[in-house]
Design a protein around this nucleic acid. Sequence first.
DNA 1: ATATTTGTTATGTAGTACATAAGTACTAAA
DNA 2: TTTAGTACTTATGTACTACATAACAAATAT
Lengths: 230, 230
Amino acid sequence: MPIKSLTKDLDRIAQPTMADIVEIRLREFLKKKAFKPGDPLPKELDLAESLGVSRNVVREALSRLRMLGMVSTKKKVGMILTRPDVLGSFERVLDPLIIDQSTLQDLFELRLTLEMGLADLLYLRKTKQGIDELEKIAKTQKVTGERHTFRIKNEIAFHGKLYQLTGNETLQRFQNMLLPVFGYIVKLEKRLLIGKVSHLELVHLLRNGSKEDFRQGMLAHLQHHFDQLK
Amino acid sequence: MPIKSLTKDLDRIAQPTMADIVEIRLREFLKKKAFKPGDPLPKELDLAESLGVSRNVVREALSRLRMLGMVSTKKKVGMILTRPDVLGSFERVLDPLIIDQSTLQDLFELRLTLEMGLADLLYLRKTKQGIDELEKIAKTQKVTGERHTFRIKNEIAFHGKLYQLTGNETLQRFQNMLLPVFGYIVKLEKRLLIGKVSHLELVHLLRNGSKEDFRQGMLAHLQHHFDQLK
DNA sequence: ATATTTGTTATGTAGTACATAAGTACTAAA
DNA sequence: TTTAGTACTTATGTACTACATAACAAATAT
C-alpha cells in the first residue's frame, strides 16, 4: 500500500501541547488537594513558575477550566474552584450539523430509551396538578390541520412537561438538549410526528392507568420511531 | 437584610471576558459559514485582526474549542474543523466529588431510567452469542462470599455488557461515565448491591422471556434502588 | 525521476508591559 | 471613636514582540 493513501486515512499522532499537559496537571492538582468549591487557587504566575511554563500556557489551560465552570476568577482576588454545570459542556458540542451520523442515531435511540424508562419515575412523582397541566398542553394539539411548526412546538412542550413531572431537573435539561438531534433525525427521514397513541391518550393513561398501561401507550406512541431502527 | 449576608449568597455578576466573547463569535462564525469537518479555518492572526483583539485572546478561545475537539491544529497547515466527541466534554466534569448532591441524585435516577428503558433496544438487537457472553459474566458472580470490590467489578461488567448488547456505542459509553456517580451514591447510602433478581435470572429472562418479563425482572433487580427514591 | 536542500509559513511558547478591578491600609473629618 | 474618603497594592485581563518548531513547497542536485 502506498504511503499517500495511508496518510489520508491515518492521521498523524497529534502530540499534546503544553496547554494540554497543564490542563491535565491542573485537574490532577485539584483532585489531589481535594479542593472544594469556593476554595482559593494559587495565582497564575505561581502556577506558571511551578509548572515551568509561561503564564500564557497556564492561561490557555485555565481558560478551558473556566469554560467548563470548574474555576472562576476575579481580579485581584484570584481564582476559586466552582461547581461545573455537568450538562453545560455537553450542550456546547451537541450540534446535529457537526456530529457524525452514527452518533446522531445513537443519541436518537438514547432518547427513545429514556422515554421508555420514564414510567417508573413518573409514577413515583406524578401529581394531579402536573397531569392537569400536561393535559392542557395535550389539548391545544387536538385541533387538526395545525401548521407543522406548531405541531413540533407542541410536541416539544408535551414531552418537556412529561420530563418535568419526573421532578428530575437534570433529566429534563438533558432531554431538552437532545431535542435538536431528535428533530434533525425525524426531519431527515421525513417521518410523521403523530404516533398511534395521541398525547391525550397518554395523559389519560398516566392519570387512570397502571404503570404498565402507560408504558405500553408510550411504546405505541413511539412505535413508528422504533420501526425505523435496525 | 444586611449587605454582608447578601454578598455571601449572591455572586457578583461576572462580566464576560474577551475570550468568552471570542469563543461565542467563533462558534457563530463556524455555524454561519456552515463549516464541515475537515474544512480549513482562517489563521489565528487573521482572526485576531478581524475581531480586533490580540492573538492571545484568540488562542484562549481556540484552546477551548480544541479541548472539545471542535478544531484541531497543525503547524504550518493551520486549523481545521473536526468532529467533537460528544461525550468527551461530559466526561471532563463528571466527578462525583465536585458535583452537588442534587445533581448526583438526578444522574443516579437518569441511569435507573435508562436501565428501565433498555428492554426495547435489547429485544431488537440481542443475539444468542451476546446473551452467551452475558451469561458467562453473570456466572462468575454466582460464587457466594466474593469480596466486595470483586462484586462491584462484576456488577459493572454485567451492566456494561448489557448496554453493549444494545449495539449503541454512545449509550454504552454514557452509562460507563455514570458508573462513578452510581457507585458514589450507592456507597454513600450504604446500600446493598444485590437485588431481588440476580444477574443470572436476568440472563434467563432475556433469553427465554418476553420483553415485559425482562423489564419486570430489571425492575425487581433495581427495586431496592427505587425504594430509596422520594 | 528521485533524493536532498532550502525557504516559507502558521502554530506553539516565552516574556514584557500596562490597564483594570478589588481588596487593604491609611488619613482626615465629624 | 467612628466614619468617609483616599492612596496603595495586587492578581487578572489584554496587547505586543520575539523566536522555536513543524510541515509544506519549491528549487536543486544526483
